[in-house]
Write a protein that binds this DNA or RNA. Structure first.
Lengths: 156, 156
DNA sequence: CTTATATAGTACTAATTTAGTACCCTTTAG
DNA sequence: CTAAAGGGTACTAAATTAGTACTATATAAG
């Protein structure tokens, strides 16, 4: 239904919150209480974010999580990539090949790939920094970002 | 998972096929055979498209379906609107209000609304005509469309 | 005016996906 | 050495989606 999963939504929420206080270390318990989410859920999300190097973690007592890089170099697309299981793509045939048999089917495949690119670009354009201070959002004025704000995997 | 449903995909496929032969009347049986889809599924999709005035239907023997308006005035967003049950929006809180209690939650709500607008605009920019002849797609050169290519319901 | 063909509508079933939880292990500060 | 915190895996339950079946209605053709 053209919707991100709740976990991805939570992830964005968590990341945005952490971006607001970049110095602190945030424990999963802290985040869960502050944001009104379940602790197991928050843990799950943070683990996935850590696996994709969007947050760093410190184990042991007084440990916690922090953003792995400056908020302005993390895009919404990065968070989606980290938390959605399947690769980015509006249709199945956008990400996997060999599923369509019919000629007409393949006729619109290229179109979906194009549309994907456009949608994805829109999501890459929004950084966490902009989520925290939305002033610049949607005005056409975007912050300048480093090269790692680009998605690691180009569109398939 | 940020993916359109299969039914929406089928709808796009069907509409694109009909746009290729705008004169003919297409029966559901015809379309199902040509496109390799199940007849009940095709029927279901066509009914939904008809309810949203994207196709017209002629009942009885020799009946069938046809596009309700020129292909260049129908956008991919129109098809998505017709076939997705829930209103357009990447997150739940984008379409419904009063679900979030926490402050931080509301802090990012506006951002999702913005992102929605951007994504949606991208989908509105692609017409069925472009799906049939993809030459102009993605090049920044878009066909000129009439006013009804705009979505009937603005973003909530 | 009857029959075959076609759409219209509704309801149900099955399969897939997603969300959330539970459990146990590892690390580290005090 | 103990409490606090992250790491990983597996399972259960809920929600969504896809597909099918059945019945009603309309119309063209003979």
């Amino acid at each position: 239904m053209l919707r991100i999963s709740k976990l991805t939504d939570y992830g964005t929420l968590i990341m945005t919150h952490m971006a607001g206080q970049p110095e602190r270390l945030h424990s999963a318990t802290d985040l869960a209480e502050t944001l009104g989410l379940g602790l197991p859920t928050v843990s799950k999300v943070l683990k996935a974010l850590g696996r994709h190097d969007l947050v760093t973690s410190l184990r042991g007592a007084r440990g916690g999580y922090a953003l792995a890089r400056p908020a302005r170099t993390i895009s919404v697309a990065d968070i989606i990539d980290a938390l959605e299981d399947q690769p980015f793509g509006l249709t199945e045939c956008s990400t996997t090949t060999g599923l369509c048999d019919l000629e007409a089917n393949c006729r619109i495949r290229d179109n979906w790939l194009m549309i994907n690119t456009v949608v994805r670009r829109a999501l890459e354009e929004v950084s966490l920094a902009e989520m925290v201070s939305p002033a610049a959002l949607g005005t056409g004025v975007h912050l300048i970002r480093g090269p790692d704000s680009r998605a690691k995997q180009p569109l398939s």
